[in-house]
Design a protein around this nucleic acid. Sequence first.
DNA 1: AGCGCAGTTGCGACCTGATCGCAATAAGGT
DNA 2: ACCTTATTGCGATCAGGTCGCAACTGCGCT
Lengths: 155, 155
Amino acid sequence: MSKPLSPAAGAGQGASSVDEVLRLVRARGGRATPSRRVLLEVLFEADGHMTAEELAEAVQARAPDVHISTIYRNVEDLERLGVVVHAHMGHGPAAYQLATLAHGHFICEVCGATLEAPDELFADLAGTVKAKMGFTIDPHHFAMLGRCRACEEGG
Amino acid sequence: MSKPLSPAAGAGQGASSVDEVLRLVRARGGRATPSRRVLLEVLFEADGHMTAEELAEAVQARAPDVHISTIYRNVEDLERLGVVVHAHMGHGPAAYQLATLAHGHFICEVCGATLEAPDELFADLAGTVKAKMGFTIDPHHFAMLGRCRACEEGG
DNA sequence: AGCGCAGTTGCGACCTGATCGCAATAAGGT
DNA sequence: ACCTTATTGCGATCAGGTCGCAACTGCGCT
């Protein structure tokens, strides 16, 4: 499935169930394999973002033989479909989640705490940067680092 | 030098010459080795950020036997001294530069172009986030991803 | 109901960026 | 000059992720 998908045609962002996504996958020439289904179940049940390793662990609880490289390949495919997005949370592994739930992050570089960032916060910045530099910001992809209140005051 | 330095005492941000930094290094119990000196020369001469590999190449042009692990250890030490900072430019290696020249970055996730971000752009966001969430943003450490004008319009 | 093409998988090898242990070396205070 | 201790080069190792390949399997077609 990797190659034949029409490139980033921004399709299924609204996909709201495992079966719906699987339908989308098939419409694009992909196949509804067990690994894919279980991965999607895990993603739909997750209440936050998960690293590839966490996804693998959760998937393997139901389908023990699914290899982590299959997880990587599948999230990549699902990302191309617009169903999943990944974000980089400071150092360390990337975090995946359903595109519908995407949001930005603030990460304390002292204690590692991660705060979720409402999109409104970035609206002004995005507007200004677009106007002044012609650049369209994706505030979700990379977390912003800094210090949380406790570490700023305490340290 | 790695251990004995007093932890992140935010000292030498103003250091403005190789010798000045070397003086600071010695004041902290470190030593002015040739590798260190050449690395600093390269950093002071650089007109932008450089990856560890680029630094190694430049240093090795003058001191061929300097190993890349020495580069890593030295930039780490210099970072502890507040002389150097590193930033993550999207995927790929980190970029180092003198702390006095630090700034944010916007990186086009399509063509890879990197734009430098004037600090004023982040002032409002920093203020709002500080007020609403108590979080102090460091806008330099991680680049923001998005699409540059050409790729946004063309794609 | 079965066939067969092409998408997918498990596996291990491999890649990049970075860190570490160690024995040998050398800075620089005294 | 000497001796303590920071620093170095080197290779091994680590983490996170990607890839080549042969075996396997969805599922569209008949």
